[in-house]
Simulated assay, not measured.
Amino acid sequence: MKRIFSTSANKGLYHIALFIVRATVSVFMLVHGLQKLNMLLSGGPVKFPDPLGVGITNSLTLAVFAEVLCSIFIFIGLATRIVVFPLIITMFVIVFVVHGMDGFEVRELPSLYLLVYLFLLVTGSGKFSVDHFISRRDKYPAY
């Protein structure tokens, strides 16, 4: 019974759960990003919101950068706390600007993505990541 209600984390399970969350959210976002990348590369007219006033093509390019490149970095756990910023900004703009006047059902999914990206900003990428490998190498410098 004590184990069920314990608030201390099992470190092994913590890192596995963090990897699962990181990998899942990055793959899901990558799917959205690849659809936008196809739209950007299609050569046809681009229909995409321009909430920041930087131009439709530039807005789409920024979204593709965040959703494709940053998602790949998050998946492998490389510079997670840095590359999560473009995704946080993208989700913030989607939730509060693009769909700011829409109902909860439209804003729910990007709000959940925003929450996960804020979580990754705080926790980092965890043990199963390139970040962890790099930080371990710094502890044991080669002579």
Score class of each variant (00 low, 15 high):
1 M>P: 15
2 K>M: 12
3 R>Y: 15
3 R>L: 12
5 F>P: 05
5 F>K: 10
6 S>G: 08
7 T>H: 10
8 S>E: 12
9 A>S: 10
10 N>S: 09
12 G>Q: 13
12 G>V: 13
13 L>S: 10
14 Y>I: 00
15 H>D: 14
15 H>A: 08
16 I>R: 05
16 I>N: 07
18 L>T: 01
20 I>H: 00
22 R>K: 00
24 T>R: 06
25 V>R: 00
26 S>Q: 03
28 F>G: 13
29 M>E: 08
33 G>E: 10
33 G>H: 07
34 L>H: 11
34 L>S: 10
35 Q>T: 15
36 K>L: 07
37 L>S: 09
37 L>A: 14
38 N>V: 13
39 M>H: 08
40 L>W: 10
40 L>M: 14
42 S>E: 07
44 G>S: 13
47 K>H: 11
48 F>K: 02
50 D>R: 01
51 P>F: 09
51 P>K: 06
52 L>S: 09
55 G>L: 08
56 I>F: 02
60 L>Q: 04
60 L>V: 00
61 T>V: 00
62 L>T: 02
65 F>R: 03
66 A>S: 07
71 S>Y: 07
71 S>Q: 08
71 S>T: 07
71 S>M: 09
73 F>Y: 07
73 F>I: 00
73 F>Q: 04
73 F>K: 01
74 I>V: 12
74 I>H: 01
75 F>M: 01
76 I>K: 00
76 I>R: 00
79 A>M: 10
83 V>P: 03
83 V>C: 04
84 V>L: 03
86 P>F: 02
88 I>L: 06
89 I>H: 03
91 M>Y: 00
93 V>A: 03
94 I>P: 02
94 I>M: 06
95 V>A: 00
95 V>L: 04
99 H>N: 11
100 G>P: 06
102 D>L: 06
105 E>K: 03
105 E>D: 13
105 E>S: 08
106 V>N: 09
106 V>D: 11
107 R>E: 11
107 R>C: 08
108 E>S: 09
109 L>A: 12
109 L>V: 14
113 Y>M: 05
113 Y>T: 04
114 L>F: 08
114 L>W: 07
114 L>E: 09
115 L>E: 10
119 F>G: 03
119 F>I: 04
119 F>T: 00
120 L>W: 06
121 L>I: 12
122 V>P: 00
122 V>N: 02
123 T>S: 10
124 G>E: 12
125 S>R: 02
125 S>C: 03
126 G>T: 06
127 K>V: 11
127 K>Q: 12
127 K>G: 10
128 F>L: 10
132 H>E: 12
132 H>Q: 14
134 I>W: 11
135 S>A: 11
136 R>E: 14
139 K>C: 11
139 K>G: 13
142 A>V: 11
143 Y>W: 08
